[in-house]
Amino acid sequence: MHISDGVLSLEITVVVSVISLFAMLKAIKELKNEDISITGVASAMFFIASFIHIPFGITQIHLILLGVIGILVSWGAFVAIFAALLLQALLLGYGGIVSIGVNLFIMAMPAVIVHYIYHTPFIQNLNDKIKFFVVGFLGTFFATLFLTAILYFSKEEYNYAAVSIFLLNIITMIIEGIVSMFLLLFIKKVYPKILKV
């Protein structure tokens, strides 16, 4: 899901990074001192998720937990994911320091969108299992959608890759939905106050 440095065109990188910058400024402004620790937790969870490989057939996938992060920290996802992406770029080589604005948009914006969707009366009236599945599924769905669109519009040569990435990630969306469902059911049982609903 991470785009490496050197892949995207200058125009796409600048435009998307500027959007991320404004979102980041909003996130910093709204971040209260007492929410710094939970934002740090969301950031660490995002980082750790890249180390945990979930089996699917002969291959493995890793989770990104964007939906879960979104319902927990809302716009704070921009700060949390920025921290994790920079550490991943410099310590692990995932993504990159120039494409960080683009990767931040791809990962953090879905988290914020899921936050708003989660708080709609329609979703709140759903059964817990379905509601939590939707949270995980939509986080990965929007991230894949943004990744596909950015690759598609960056260079003509990425058209095949963009479409293929979307199709390949449909399975990831479903698995992310299932794992997120169990994760949030666990949190609701053990630490319900954090879900704030």
Binding site: I38, I52, P55, L65, I175, S180, F182, L183, F186, Y191
Partner: peptide, 29 residues
């Protein structure tokens, strides 16, 4: 394996890690 049981186990592990992280971060705060 590719099974609901495995995904439930991973979901619970993530949940447990998350709760531990929350408690640790509260202690740090």
């Amino acid at each position: 394996t590719t099974s609901i049981f495995t995904y439930q186990t991973y979901g619970n592990i993530f949940g447990m890690i998350f709760v531990k992280a929350l408690r640790k971060s509260e202690d740090m705060t």
